[in-house]
């Protein structure tokens, strides 16, 4: 049987990949995709803990994480489309409206 720590290390690798993606990519769509990676890493952790601790609550929390991910994608992509209409770019380096 696989130890729980293997699942946690897998999830940590995927999460860190998402963090690095947010740090190094310029395209704002890629930033949202990296955030999806991070959310999925947490989902792996939740399900693994739910199985190893024999508690269904972990799976219920994945359900809520899924809801939040869906809401985040809908609003985030709408913001990207509005930004693209206004500035004609998706490069985060050029989106400096809030800079003073």
């Amino acid at each position: 049987m696989i130890p729980l720590s293997y699942y946690m290390i897998l999830s940590a690798i995927v999460f860190v990949t998402g963090v690095v993606g947010v740090l190094i990519r310029r395209n704002i769509i890629m930033l949202l995709l990296s955030i999806e990676l991070m959310l999925n890493a947490t989902n792996i952790n939740f399900v693994a803990f739910s199985y190893y601790l024999g508690n269904i609550a972990g799976q219920v929390f994945v359900f809520f994480a899924l809801t939040v991910a869906a809401a985040e994608v809908a609003v985030g992509l709408a913001i990207i489309i509005a930004l693209y209409r206004g500035k004609a770019t998706v490069n985060v380096a050029e989106l400096n409206l809030m800079k003073w």
Binding site: M1, P3, M8, I9, V16, Y51, Y52, L53, G54, N55
Partner: peptide
């Protein structure tokens, strides 16, 4: 994170209850 996980006392087997 890996250092923390390697030190943590995590279960190797699924919970007995299930």
């Amino acid at each position: 994170v890996i250092a923390i996980i390697s030190k943590a006392a995590l279960p190797d087997e699924p919970a007995q209850s299930k």
